[in-house]
Deep mutational scan, measured.
Amino acid sequence: MAAAAAAGAGPEMVRGQVFDVGPRYTNLSYIGEGAYGMVCSAYDNVNKVRVAIKKISPFEHQTYCQRTLREIKILLRFRHENIIGINDIIRAPTIEQMKDVYIVQDLMETDLYKLLKTQHLSNDHICYFLYQILRGLKYIHSANVLHRDLKPSNLLLNTTCDLKICDFGLARVADPDHDHTGFLTEYVATRWYRAPEIMLNSKGYTKSIDIWSVGCILAEMLSNRPIFPGKHYLDQLNHILGILGSPSQEDLNCIINLKARNYLLSLPHKNKVPWNRLFPNADSKALDLLDKMLTFNPHKRIEVEQALAHPYLEQYYDPSDEPIAEAPFKFDMELDDLPKEKLKELIFEETARFQPGYRS
C-alpha cells in the first residue's frame, strides 16, 4: 500500500510507478496490472468513496492506442447498470505532455475469474450472474457493438453480487458484411471463450460470437473449470467437437473457408456428449439454455433477447427493466489503419471533457 500523499506533496508512487492523480484522489492501494497499465484503488475526496484507477501508458504502440481509444469512446457513450462506466479521466493539459491516461471507475471487490478459483456457486448465484451478463449484453448488442472478449476476468463483482462487464478494448461495431482481413492475426481474445466460426472463417462476425462466450462462462460457473481449455488453435476446435459432436452437413455448409471445411470433413465422426453427463448436478433449465448458447452453427445460436426470456431466468426476466441503447454506435473511421500519432490526438480530444474549465 502506498503511503497517503500529504496535501501538495506531488504524485504518489505505487510499486515504483508514478500515479499522478492528486489532489482529488489519494490513499492509493495496488490492485493489479494488465498488459499496459496498473490498477489501484484510491480515495475520492470529492465523492467520499474509494474508486478504481487504471493507469494506461499506450502511446508507444499502435495496438494499445487503438484499444484505449475504443474503450474510452464506447464506455463514455454507454450507460447501463451492468456495464462499468467511466467516472473521470485524468491526463496532462497538453498533448505533448500526455504520456499516461488515468481512467477512474467504480471500485468492484472482485471478478468472476477470482471468485470461481475459490468458491463453488449455488444455482441461485449462477442464475443471477447469468441474468446480469445477458442484461448488459442486450444493451451492448442493441448499440450494434460486439464485445468480443467476454470471459470471467472481464466480469466485475461486488459483495452485493452486482455484476458489471468491463474491458471493451477489443470491441467492434457489428459488421457481418465487412471482410476484416487479418482478423485472426489481430484477434487476441482469450482462445477458450472463442466461437468456432472465428477459427473457421475470417469473413465478418456477428453478435452470436458473444453468446458463445457467455455459454462458455455459464459452463464454467457450473463446474469451476473452463469447458474448452484448448492449448492452441486446432486443439481448441477438437475440444469443442469432442463435446458438441461432429457438425451436420448443414452446419458445414455455413463454413465459407474450404480449407477449414475440408479439415472438419477429414475428422472421424464424434457423438455429442449429453450435458447432464458433463454437469450431473446442474439445473435442467440451465443445461437447456447452455445447449442453445453453445450451438456450433452461429445462425442457430440463441440471441440475447431470447436467452433473457428463457425459463431458467424467469424469476428475473423483465423486458421493461432491460434497457437498450438510445442509438446504434458508430465509429467515424476504422481505427485499425491509423498511425499511433493520430490515435493519440483522438484520445486527447475524447478525454477533453474531463479537463478543468472544459467548454463543449
Rank of each mutant, 00 (worst) to 15 (best):
A2W: 00
A3D: 13
A3Y: 08
A6V: 10
A7N: 03
A9L: 07
G10F: 10
P11K: 09
P11T: 14
E12H: 06
E12S: 12
V14N: 07
R15D: 05
G16N: 02
G16E: 12
Q17K: 12
D20Y: 15
P23Q: 05
P23H: 14
P23W: 00
P23G: 03
P23Y: 00
Y25I: 10
Y25K: 07
Y25P: 05
N27W: 00
L28R: 07
S29I: 13
Y30R: 02
Y30L: 05
G32C: 14
G32F: 02
E33N: 00
E33Y: 12
Y36C: 15
Y36L: 15
Y36V: 15
C40F: 13
C40S: 14
S41L: 10
A42S: 14
D44P: 08
D44V: 12
V46T: 04
N47I: 15
K48I: 14
K48A: 13
V49P: 13
V49Y: 12
I53K: 03
I53E: 10
K55M: 06
I56V: 15
S57V: 11
S57Y: 15
S57R: 14
S57A: 14
P58A: 15
F59V: 15
T63A: 12
C65L: 14
Q66A: 11
Q66R: 13
R67G: 14
R67N: 05
T68N: 15
T68F: 06
T68D: 15
R70H: 12
R70A: 10
K73L: 11
F78W: 03
H80E: 07
E81W: 02
N82T: 12
G85C: 15
N87D: 00
D88V: 13
I89E: 03
I90T: 02
R91Y: 01
R91C: 12
R91K: 01
A92R: 06
A92P: 05
T94N: 14
T94P: 13
I95P: 11
E96T: 08
Q97L: 15
K99F: 01
V101T: 09
V101I: 12
V101S: 06
Y102K: 10
Y102C: 05
Y102G: 04
Y102M: 06
I103R: 12
V104M: 08
Q105N: 13
D106Y: 14
D106R: 06
L107H: 07
L107R: 12
D111F: 09
D111A: 15
Y113C: 00
K114I: 15
K114H: 04
L115K: 00
L116V: 03
K117L: 10
K117C: 13
T118A: 00
T118K: 13
T118I: 12
S122W: 04
S122C: 13
D124N: 15
H125M: 03
C127A: 12
Y128C: 13
F129W: 07
Y131T: 11
I133A: 00
L134I: 07
L134W: 07
L137D: 09
L137M: 12
L137A: 09
L137W: 09
H141K: 08
S142T: 13
A143H: 03
A143W: 03
V145K: 01
D149I: 06
D149E: 13
L150H: 03
K151L: 08
K151A: 05
P152D: 08
S153A: 07
S153P: 02
N154K: 13
N154H: 11
L155R: 03
N158R: 09
T160L: 05
T160C: 05
C161T: 01
D162E: 15
I165D: 05
C166N: 11
D167F: 07
D167H: 08
D167T: 05
L170F: 01
L170H: 04
L170G: 10
R172V: 06
P176E: 07
P176Q: 13
P176D: 07
D177F: 06
D177E: 14
D179Y: 15
H180R: 04
T181H: 10
T181A: 00
G182K: 03
G182V: 15
L184R: 01
T185Y: 05
T185N: 13
E186G: 00
Y187G: 00
Y187E: 03
V188T: 08
V188W: 12
A189Q: 12
T190Y: 05
R191K: 06
P196D: 03
I198A: 00
I198R: 08
I198E: 03
I198Q: 02
M199D: 11
M199K: 14
N201I: 15
N201C: 01
S202H: 06
K203N: 14
K203L: 08
G204L: 08
G204Q: 07
Y205Q: 06
Y205H: 00
Y205V: 12
S208K: 04
I209S: 12
D210C: 05
I211W: 07
W212P: 12
W212M: 05
S213W: 04
S213A: 12
V214W: 05
V214Q: 11
E220F: 02
S223K: 07
N224E: 13
R225V: 07
R225S: 15
P226N: 07
P226M: 08
P226H: 14
P226F: 02
P226Q: 03
F228N: 11
F228A: 01
F228E: 02
G230L: 02
G230T: 00
K231S: 02
K231I: 09
Y233I: 11
D235E: 14
H239D: 11
L241G: 10
L244E: 08
S246D: 02
S246E: 06
S248F: 10
S248V: 10
Q249D: 06
D251H: 09
L252C: 09
N253E: 11
I255R: 04
I255C: 13
I256R: 11
N257E: 09
L258P: 10
A260P: 09
R261A: 05
Y263W: 03
S266G: 14
L267C: 06
P268T: 14
P268M: 06
H269V: 08
K270L: 09
K270G: 03
N271G: 04
V273L: 13
W275Q: 06
L278D: 03
F279W: 03
D283V: 13
D283H: 08
A286Q: 06
A286P: 06
D288L: 06
D291S: 02
M293R: 10
M293Y: 06
M293G: 04
T295D: 01
P298F: 03
P298L: 12
H299A: 06
R301N: 02
I302E: 04
E303P: 00
Q306M: 10
Q306Y: 10
A307G: 08
A307H: 00
L308Y: 02
A309F: 04
P311T: 14
L313H: 09
E314N: 03
P319G: 12
S320N: 07
D321H: 07
E322C: 06
P323E: 02
A325D: 05
E326M: 05
E326G: 02
A327P: 10
F329Y: 14
K330Y: 06
M333D: 12
M333N: 11
M333A: 04
E334I: 00
E334H: 07
L335C: 01
L335T: 09
D336F: 06
D337I: 08
L338E: 06
L338Y: 06
L338V: 05
P339E: 11
K342C: 02
K342G: 08
L343H: 09
L343Y: 04
K344H: 08
K344R: 13
E349S: 04
E349A: 06
E350A: 03
E350K: 14
R353Y: 10
R353F: 07
F354C: 11
G357M: 09
R359W: 15
